[in-house]
Design a protein around this nucleic acid. Sequence first.
RNA 1: GCUGAUGUAGCUCAGCUGGUUAGAGCGCACGACUCAUAAUCGUGAGGUCGGAAGUUCAAGUCUUCCCAUCAGCACCA
Length: 603
Amino acid sequence: MSAQYIHVSVAWPYANGDLHIGHLAGAYLPADIFARYHRLRGNHVLMVSGSDSHGTPITVEADKRGTTPLAVFEHYHERFLQTQRKIGVSYDLFTHTDTENHHLVAQDIFRTLLARGHLYKEKQTLLYSESEKRFLPDRYVEGTCYICKYPHARGDQCENCGNLMDAIQLIDPHSRNNPDDKLIPRESEHYFLDLGRFTEAILAYLAEHAHHWRPNVSTFSQNFVKDGLRGRPITRDIDWGVQVPLEGWEDKRLYVWFDAVMGYFTASIEWAKNIGVPDEWKKWWYNPEAKIYNFIGKDNIPFHTIIWQAELLGIDGIYNEDDPVNGDIPLQLPYDVPANEFMNIEGQQFSTSRNWAVWLPDLLERYQADALRFYVARTFPERQDSDFSWEGFLARVNNELLAAWGNLVNRMLGFAYKRFDGAVPQYEQLTAADRDIIAATEAGFDSVGALLEQVRLKEALEETLSLARDVNAWLNEREPWQAIKADRADAARSVYAALRCIDNLKILFAPFTPFSSQQVHEMLGYEGQLFGELNIEKYSEETRDHLALVYDGAKAIGEWTASDLQPGQKLRQPSPLFTKLDPEIVEQERGNLGKERVERPIR
RNA sequence: GCUGAUGUAGCUCAGCUGGUUAGAGCGCACGACUCAUAAUCGUGAGGUCGGAAGUUCAAGUCUUCCCAUCAGCACCA
């Protein structure tokens, strides 16, 4: 089978605070496991994402700190790069939305949609601040709830009675920052994306794809369309964001949801520019054989199963009309949108305001990246919400990852190293049982691989773990530590078989726990890296520079194929793969929840 | 209010289109082993599958109602 083109589109985090366990569980880790699997398969993977620099969450945070949106997003963008590098999310490009490239492509998309009649103008009544000379976004507006008379209702929702509302419905609306600043309703003209025009095309798209989607995603999407697709405003009266590329619209910006989803596309284009082959992105976006997978959290489903598709349908052919060979190929829509549900923490919903959260930079100071990856992957909310608990973390890491896999590696590599002169044993002929266990782990390349291709990641990990247990069970039957006393040749056979199984398992585990697989690879005496390197690079555009996280796979030699371990190969001194966790961490970590957090520099 | 989802052993979860004594891992008990970070392996005890009714030769698996939890959407005030 020839190499496939796999695009891994990963949700863009708002750069207004650190990454937490929910980000990892919802999108980044599933995407990375999937991408690493395909990298091992030798497929052409393009995995992109970036920081969402725009949007009111950023400006709100900037106001709170008395600084600029630019400073806020650049601060967190850099922390995102460091954090994701440490936990090993292998983006080909993790950029942000405030690059020249993103602005220009987003504006081209706007113009294309406008030229083709997919946008319409409409007047909206919004709240205007005389003193600030601007329209205030809903989140900046406070007033008395027209339902329950609660005096501090927000412009988008009343915290007291929970009702959603339009800001103009508030009684006595005023600015949140300045209660004396009375707001007045004023008309403002905005562009809307005419989603209704795409209803038929979206229905056809869903009919074609939804059967292989997760049920929660496909049901939700179909209901969303059934409810009727209404136009959505794509411009706002703000000054932070992508400029609307029209004369007379200098005071307005593209609405953040509109420019953020196109990041998958704009980042692909940036990636191609960065590597010096400007058209390279078309191998995914204008290739009917390519498959685009969009990893997101459930809160974003309609944007990624309907609205993004509408945008793509609306710009079909963009940057490709003049291509003499591929000019007729349609722009590709996502093949699958494997959205995860939410990961709660110790039974409660995640919340930044209460600091009921588990922050990745803090975790990475104290725990191994692979231990976190393993536990989170083991409890992925693939079908329903799941729960992150410290007790669970302790149990899964100590009793599963360390006991079943780490210990298997440690016991046999240690045994071989000590008793067979630091080398893979030479052997005469394997027993049937030895051949069987090798074959069983080799079969994992098909069974685990099939699950990974279907994005059934939890099952894939469970299957892998179960193979490691099978090897432990077989080993207890074979007892090379007994055999070596009387029949060294027999011990050599079984130890060789064990090492070969470990060599297979190393690859099967690699998408989940890449760092420790690399360690096993080295302890087995191999050279080279299973995966490439993650680097933080600086890219310069005409008016500004930006940092990005970039995967360099040039030196990667890992392959999703069975081991061909050679007898006699020199081993390296083995050491334990995983650190055993002290049960005391459970109480300590629980104690941190809900308390104020101090952000520390990432080392 | 509407729509959707979830509720299965102490814990975390699997159980596709209904079909033999309801599964896994962890935890627990007992036993084996000692190469290994007291890790591993075997055996076992644990569930009237949220509740009630119904369809069926047969129901965690379908239908209805109810309870609980969660999410999305809408609307009137």
